[in-house]
Amino acid sequence: MNISGNTVFIPGATSGIGLALALELQARGNTVIVGGRRVELLERIAAEHPGIDTVRIDTADAASIDSAAKEVLAKHPGLNVLVTMAGIMRIEDWHRPESFLASAESIVTTNVLGPIRLIAAFVEHLQAQPDATIMTVSSGLAFAPLKVTPSYNASKAAIHMLSESIRLQLADTTVKIVELEPPAVRTALLPGQEESEFAVPLEEYVAEVIALIEAQPDAKEIQVERVKFLRYAEARGDYDQVVQTLNASDPHGE
């Protein structure tokens, strides 16, 4: 992915990593469209950051995705980058189904069906562009599990394998598949995570991501240094120790 000169749509970017990435990409000379559910946040972003376009989208709702895609493409026919940022994370107790089933279903809808539906809505358009990118968002927890978030871990493992698979299928097109793999970052993904000393400060994380995209435009996976502890545990042969360390330290995964 080139660091500048793109038209980028980031659904799920009204806060956290998504918004910080949107602002940095705009600063690097990209046209950026931010998507989210809450109209008041979209209006605030548009007012505070001139030049950023916004669109309401609920990535848990197939009809909303279709409607937003039509709106984005009508206003920005040169769109060539889709970042499937939207996601949710919840603590679950799998001893009792009444305590986790609704959560698990919601996570799968948002974190797995959401990106699948987004890609389906844009992939034909992207294939018609001379240079296009789909950036998926998995997690370090796709590679080593945090015991309190089973459905989130599984959803991100699914995104990793989805990314690997569609990269193979779309190899004969102009569309690149890039997988962003965050570690724990100081955002509101879980209660208390914004203050967690084990999580990477948001500004530090996004700065490293931007530097990696700029230095490695052909990268298949964007991995900051902090995520490699989780990402390569199995390859290093210390998977059991990594899982033990992960679950003995911070409840947010680092």
Rank of each mutant, 00 (worst) to 15 (best):
M1N: 06
N2C: 02
T7W: 03
T7Q: 07
V8S: 00
F9G: 10
P11A: 07
T14I: 11
G18Y: 12
G18H: 10
A20M: 06
A27P: 05
R28C: 13
G29E: 07
T31A: 10
G35L: 11
R37E: 11
E40N: 12
E40P: 02
I45C: 11
A46H: 09
E48G: 11
P50A: 13
P50W: 04
I52Q: 11
D53I: 07
D53W: 06
A60R: 13
A62G: 01
A62E: 14
A63V: 11
S64N: 02
A69R: 04
A69V: 03
A69N: 01
V72Y: 05
A74H: 09
H76S: 06
P77Q: 09
N80A: 04
V81N: 03
V83N: 04
V83R: 06
T84N: 14
A86R: 08
I88P: 07
I88R: 14
M89Y: 09
M89P: 06
I91F: 13
W94V: 14
H95T: 13
R96Q: 08
S99N: 12
F100D: 04
A104T: 12
I107R: 08
I107Q: 15
T109R: 15
T109C: 10
G114M: 12
G114F: 07
R117S: 04
I119H: 05
A120W: 04
A120F: 02
E124F: 05
Q127H: 10
D131S: 15
S138H: 06
G140D: 01
G140F: 00
L141Y: 01
F143P: 01
F143W: 09
A144N: 01
A144T: 14
K147P: 00
Y152N: 09
Y152P: 09
N153H: 06
A154H: 04
A154S: 14
K156Y: 04
K156F: 06
K156D: 08
M161H: 13
M161L: 12
S163C: 06
E164Q: 15
E164T: 14
E164H: 08
S165C: 07
R167F: 08
L170V: 07
A171W: 08
T173P: 11
V175E: 12
K176T: 14
I177R: 09
E179L: 09
A184F: 01
V185Y: 01
R186A: 09
T187R: 02
L189N: 04
P191Y: 11
G192H: 08
S196R: 06
E197D: 13
F198S: 00
A199L: 06
A199S: 08
A199Q: 05
A199M: 02
P201C: 09
Y205N: 02
Y205P: 03
V206Q: 05
I210G: 01
A211F: 07
A215S: 15
A215G: 07
Q223L: 15
Q223M: 12
K228C: 05
L230W: 05
D238Y: 05
Q241I: 01
Q241E: 13
V242F: 00
L246R: 00
N247C: 00
S249N: 03
S249V: 00
S249D: 02
D250N: 01
D250R: 00
H252D: 00
G253H: 01
G253K: 01
E254L: 01
